[in-house]
Design a protein around this nucleic acid. Structure first.
Lengths: 346, 346
DNA sequence: TATTAGCACTCAGACTCTTTGAGTGCTAAT
DNA sequence: ATTAGCACTCAAAGAGTCTGAGTGCTAATA
């Protein structure tokens, strides 16, 4: 009993330190805690507790005569302890605002996501990020081929989800209109209803059977599919560079550089987000919990969004580890929900 | 005669100051000039000349006991005096490299431009920028409409240039397949061969005549055209944020912030580049010569690229006013040529 | 008359030294 | 178990000094 009381108190102090540090980037001292968080204890006692917390790895001192600052472990505790209070996250007015801002955006998913990242970054002052749906798991609906300048053809692929991919492809020079028609008929009848992923697999099989090498129709079809499906560099939307630079956390030039470098390498970001979006729900990665954010003291909060019942992409936030996790999580959560709603409506 | 000699000498000193300052961001002193640029004059004389140049507005002193630094007027002189030496710009090896790097990129113009900005930024260490072709002046080739989820239709527009725009449009709910066919036939027969700009004008006229308001076919057609043509947010490709941060010119955080803000506002950049690309050839804007780069001590170098004989877009560089103009101009020039070549081949 | 040597002067930047104050850990008293 | 009290630490800010690169001016020189 006594034991429990103690522990509880210890963690309330930890919580207070994190809470204070999040809203103000100065190391937190014992006196400040007593005054502001009204434990009925003297600074000396708090000091003892803090020393314990430091030993346990939740806090650290930037230098001997300074207050304490949370370690990643400390943030982790804070975040985990918040998760149970999910219901209280929402700041209604804020979230309503959010929706309002996105409401007027047209149905184009890219525009929607782009504007989403902007909005997120504006309200949080962190980086807003969004990965658009990968076509891999979307369903082939129709492909159209047009002749285009000599030996090139333009291929337009439409999926059930409304993703439209297009690409100009160089084909053998002498393809006739009739061939083209046959080709697109073939593709449409053959693949309609499969996911892109499945189609890719089918194509691989076909390729193995040597029959394909002789059948021009199929080899052409394959080429087209390959090209169209791989087209479009994997993009991520990122906004808020200027926002993020306003944060006191990024007053160090070296740090800014490191971050820019990371951000410019979109592949890395995509990889990171992919890792996080494997299953449902909001996720928080704190600093070195993930190699990408690694040494840069960055945290990432993400949530997948759905189209119907399938999750197709991810949105999120990148910010310093000293981040207002509660607010950020609320915002990411609400935004992801809203996007899902938009994509799934009707 | 004597007069000319003098003037010539004065400007050779100016040239030397700019040249030196460009390769090394320290204010340039009189002694340094005599040693490094081998005028057969004493530092004292150079000092006199520099004082003259300062009075004429070509140079300035950061503080009394420092060397001189070029003003914008000074840079302008430098750039203008270089322009006549255009032929010597090319560093062959560099330009060949450039081409090699872009060669393997597929025919997709966006990918090409994106990679172009990357390459430029990497070799110059400044920001690489590119504006993709505006569809406004490209020629309508074909539009295809597909039914898509209830009352929406997917419209895909192909232009002669191979720009493919697509958009999902909400139309009256009860459109039949036959109507859709009629609609696309109408659009295709009516507008084929016109530029997007022209079509827009035609549409405006139609709108005036009240006949249109009653003819469903036309009003629908109009809606579709409007939506498709306006679709796609105007984008600019920008690369090299991390590169640019390595420059000594951007060791000041405030400056970085200002720049980020400018860059994030793509509309501004587009506006800027549009202003510059009105006619042919390479352009250099130095600092406050343009309101956008205004107080930020940034310079912009741009060159339009062509498709066939029409210029369709712009590529360029943004960097600090203390920029290696000659090299940068050479690179922009060569790159624009190369892009034009690629777009116009076949 | 144009150039230059010489000299006094200026000033940013680097360095050192000191002060300040917030915060700690430890010990002894409660 | 808690706390008051005290000695100690250390970053940050300020003051003073030194240095060196660079200037402008004047008087001597070619």
């Amino acid at each position: 009993m006594k034991r429990d009381m103690l522990e509880d108190r210890v963690f309330r102090v930890l919580w207070a330190v994190v809470d204070s540090y999040i809203s103000n980037p100065d190391p937190v001292g014992s006196r400040y805690i007593t005054r502001k968080y009204g434990f009925n204890l003297s600074p000396a006692t708090i000091r003892n507790i803090m020393a314990d917390l430091e030993e346990m790895g939740y806090l650290m001192q930037p230098h001997t005569s300074a207050g304490r600052v949370p370690t990643e472990k400390g943030y982790r505790f804070y975040v985990d302890s918040m998760e149970s209070l999910k219901s209280e996250w929402a700041e209604d007015s804020l979230l309503k605002d959010l929706r309002k801002r996105l409401e007027y955006i047209k149905d184009d998913i890219n525009e929607l996501l782009n504007e989403t990242t902007r909005t997120i970054s504006e309200v949080t002052h962190y980086l807003g990020i969004a990965v658009p749906p990968k076509p891999d798991r979307s369903i082939f609906k129709k492909i159209n081929l047009y002749k285009y300048r000599g030996n090139r053809i333009a291929a337009v692929l439409i999926t059930e989800e409304g993703i439209i991919k297009n690409r100009i492809i160089e084909l053998d020079p002498d393809i006739s209109d009739r061939d083209l028609k046959r080709l697109s008929d073939y593709l449409n009848s053959r693949f309609s209803g499969y996911t892109i992923d499945e189609i890719r697999k089918i194509l691989l099989k076909e390729m193995d059977s040597d029959r394909a090498t002789f059948d021009r129709l199929i080899s052409r079809a394959m080429k087209i599919c390959e090209e169209v499906m791989h087209s479009g560099p994997n993009t991520v939307f990122i906004s808020g560079l200027s926002e993020v630079l306003e944060l006191p956390d990024f007053s160090d030039i070296e740090r800014i550089r490191a971050i820019m470098k990371t951000i410019e390498d979109k592949h890395m970001i995509i990889k990171l987000l992919d890792m996080l979006s494997e299953n449902d729900g909001i996720k928080v990665v704190i600093g070195s919990e993930n190699p990408v954010t690694g040494k840069m003291r960055l945290s990432v909060i993400t949530s997948p969004y759905r189209e119907g019942d399938r999750q197709v992409g991810t949105i999120g936030i990148i910010g310093p580890t000293r981040m207002d996790y509660v607010r950020a999580m609320a915002i990411v959560d609400a935004t992801a929900r809203y996007i899902s709603e938009r994509l799934s409506e009707k």
